[in-house]
Design a protein around this nucleic acid. Structure first.
Ligand SMILES: [Mn+2]
Ligand SMILES: [Mn+2]
Ligand SMILES: [Mn+2]
Ligand SMILES: [Mn+2]
Lengths: 217, 217
DNA sequence: TAAAAAATTTAGACTTATCTAAAATATGAA
DNA sequence: TTCATATTTTAGATAAGTCTAAATTTTTTA
């Protein structure tokens, strides 16, 4: 089995690998709030275990074995987040840190039964897809709200920023997962956006917020 | 906060302290499958943190602060065991090792909400009392089945041996928590016991099994 | 294309938790 | 009460994961 630190590195490399073919030491260090030298040490260890492809100075990619472990951890993370929100009534901005601990509970059978207990949910509270017990999941085409044009509509389906303040703000504005929105105006001056939520509420959000809200068309 | 190792030591000292006023280094070492020298190191650390009362060569007791932490961990352990059995349909012999990991999930609010979600259960799947959110719980007077006499009856309310083989055996014999039993015979030769479960089933168990089954009168 | 700058790795140290072997202390049997 | 034995502690080592500072390699820029 793998240590907690190893699991966190693998998960981190997986997430960073979504945006780039290869992942650099410094990216990992920044993401894990650690130092580049610590990362190098761990990369050697993970390479020895054949969980990453690593050549000095050249960055890393996950091997299939490493990716499988990473996806397993992400599956657990998202299922526990779903559990915390749906069963224990936490808010979507409260669950990430708890899930960071729970994702390391090792039992495979536990997570599979948890999945079944909750009815095999497809998405976590933040709209991210939950891998099934074989590690398979679909990543639907989502685009930032900021790329929509006036009169275009879509459904809020994800967030790019998972921090508490952002999620709390969205909730207060009723900008939650599943809501249908229609762009009513885009202010040229600051690229802020006016939009209608479902059929009634009309609100106005900054460019930054629009950039971090993901929409399914 | 305390490390995983510290939490395990505190819990261990608490459990050993149920049977003796003071707990010895060797007892802890045996219980944690570690060496006496490792225990001594940790005892110094816990004493520095004022979680135990420790004088060299004299054994240890928990301070109120240490006991509070220990009870908190036991509360989490038992609530998670209850969850695993009642919500995820695990058998009572399968849940201990998973709970050993889950008891270290740190959030106090999580465990309190879990408690509420399950309706504030009073006992875990093995009959052990679950402390409430203030750490309070009752330990009912339980006696080994081996101390009963012929025609005496009682309710199975706990086990002294929590290992999988013993629990599986009990389940197969329908000797599960809550069942009412009546002693029908005690064999002098080997101190084995014949008994009736509820009103129908008549079975015969060894002295050893009778010793590890706890009864409420 | 050769410095300069940035990124990465290495060297050496620290912390936590563990171990073995040796020393110190306590206990209990004669 | 003394000495043999059991218990406990200390001394010194190891492994995982981290750090700072220095060295190395890559990348950028002039
Ligand atoms: Mn999360
Ligand atoms: Mn999430
Ligand atoms: Mn248990
Ligand atoms: Mn139990």
């Amino acid at each position: 089995m793998n240590t907690l630190a190893e699991e966190n590195y693998l998960k981190c490399i997986y997430h960073l690998g979504m945006n780039a073919a290869i992942v650099s030491t410094n990216q990992i260090a920044a993401s894990l709030n650690t130092k580049a030298s610590s990362v190098t040490d761990m990369l050697k260890k993970l390479a020895d275990k054949a969980l990453i492809n690593y050549t000095r100075y050249q960055g890393v990619t996950l091997t299939p074995a490493g990716e499988k472990i990473a996806i397993g951890i992400i599956r657990k993370h998202r299922l526990w987040e779903y559990f915390l929100v749906e069963k224990l009534n936490f808010k979507w901005d409260q669950v990430h840190d708890m899930a960071e601990e729970m994702e390391h509970i090792s039992s495979q059978e536990l997570v599979d039964r948890l999945d079944e207990f909750m009815g095999f949910p497809k998405h976590d509270p933040h709209g991210d897809p939950i891998p099934d017990c074989n590690g398979r999941f679909k990543t639907p085409e989502l685009i930032p709200l900021s790329t929509l044009v006036v009169n275009q509509c879509g459904v809020i389906s994800g967030v790019r920023d998972h921090t508490s303040p952002f999620l709390q703000y969205l909730e207060k504005q009723q900008l939650t997962i599943g809501k249908k929105i229609t762009i009513t105006d885009i202010i040229e001056y600051d690229h802020s956006v006016a939009l209608k939520i479902e059929t009634d509420k009309e609100i106005h959000i900054s460019r930054e917020v629009a950039n971090n809200l993901l929409i399914a068309l």
